[in-house]
Amino acid sequence: MKTIIIIPTYNEIDNMRPLLQEIFLYAPDTDVLIVDDNSPDGTGQLADEIHDEDPRVRVMHRTEKAGLGKAYIAGFKYAIEYGYDAAFEMDADFSHDPRYLPDFLKAIEHADLVIGSRYIPGGDTPDWSPLRRFISGGGNIYARFLLGLPVHDCTAGYRCYRRDVLERIDLDSVQSQGYAFQIEMAYRARILGFTIVETPIVFLDRRVGKSKMSRQIVIEGFTYVLRARFRKKPVVRTAIEEQESVYNEGDEEAPVVESPPVVQK
C-alpha cells in the first residue's frame, strides 16, 4: 500500500528532523508531505533541505497561516493527485507518537478510516490536567451523542484515510478547522457508509514549542456539532465530479499556495 503522512507545520523547526527520523524508523516505506504555512522560524526552508537529502520527504509551501483544516485538505488533494492509497494526519510536535504507525498500517488494511484513540482500552492522556480531560472527554461524548458517531475519540487528529474516502468527500466544501475539522471528516465518512475503526494511542504533550490550541478552536467544535445535527447531510461528490477534479486540482490550489505549490527537486 502506497502511503503518505501529511504534517502541517508552523514554527516547528526544532521538531522537524527528529520527527522524520522516528517516522522512517517505524514506517520506512512511507512518504511524508510537509505542509508549511510560511513559518517565520525557517521550518519550510529546513524541510526543503531535508527533501534534497531524502526524496521520501515532499514539501508544500503556503503563503500564510490558513488553518489546520485547509492544510490537511491541500495535503489530501496532493495524495489523490499522486496516487497514494492512504493518507495520514499527524501533528508535528510528537504528541502523535510515530511508534503507533505499524498499528495504523495494519488496521487500514481492513478499514476505510483508522483513528488513533485516547479513549479506548490502551489509550491515555497522562500529561493532561483533570480539567482538560473533562473538556475533551465531554466534548467527545457530546459529538457522539448528537451526531450518532460510532467513535470514542471524534476529535483525535492522528488518523489514516483510505483514498476512496477522500475522493468521495467533497473536500472543497469542508470549512472547519481544529477539533471541528476532525469531527466533520469523521461524520462525513460515517454518512457515506465507510468503515471506521479505532486503535489505541497514548497522547503526550508536545516536546518543544508552543501549543496552537485556542478557545476559538474549542468553540468552533461545539458549534459545528449543533449545525451538523440540524442541517441536511453533507455534500458528497459524484463520480463525474471526481473525474473532473483530477483535471482541475491545480486551479483549486492557486488561491492558497505560491506557484509552484509543491517543492519537488
Rank of each mutant, 00 (worst) to 15 (best):
S176C: 14
F230A: 07
G250P: 05
F222S: 05
E244Q: 09
H152C: 09
E81G: 11
E53M: 12
D112I: 04
R159W: 04
T223H: 07
R159P: 00
E64G: 08
D112Y: 03
V35P: 00
P98H: 09
L20T: 03
I169P: 00
L204A: 10
H61Y: 09
E167K: 15
G157C: 08
T3W: 01
D14S: 14
V174C: 08
V225N: 02
S214N: 07
Y142E: 06
F88G: 01
P260S: 05
E167Q: 15
D112L: 06
V246P: 00
G44V: 02
R227Y: 08
R207V: 11
G44H: 00
L25F: 05
G209L: 06
E22H: 10
T199D: 00
R215T: 14
K210I: 10
L33N: 04
D164H: 13
Y161C: 03
S39V: 05
P234Q: 10
I108G: 01
Q216A: 12
R99T: 12
R231A: 09
E109T: 08
P126R: 12
R188N: 03
L226Q: 11
V59T: 03
A79Q: 07
A111F: 02
H152T: 05
M60L: 13
Y161G: 01
I183C: 04
M60H: 01
I141C: 06
G44L: 02
M1C: 05
E12H: 04
P40C: 09
I219L: 14
Y179M: 12
S95V: 04
G137T: 09
T63A: 14
R133M: 11
I135H: 08
E109R: 12
R188I: 06
F203L: 14
I135M: 11
R231V: 06
V263F: 15
D124V: 05
Q175C: 10
L146I: 11
V202T: 12
I34F: 03
D85M: 10
R227M: 02
D172P: 00
G83I: 11
A47Y: 01
A87G: 04
L171T: 01
I217H: 07
I6D: 00
G42W: 04
K65H: 14
L25E: 14
R190V: 06
R207M: 13
V57H: 02
V197C: 06
H152I: 03
K233H: 09
C154V: 15
V246C: 05
L68V: 07
P234Y: 09
A180H: 03
T125L: 15
A47T: 06
E244H: 11
G44K: 01
Q177N: 14
L149N: 04
V57W: 03
M213R: 15
P28I: 08
Y158T: 04
I23G: 03
V174M: 07
L68D: 00
D48T: 09
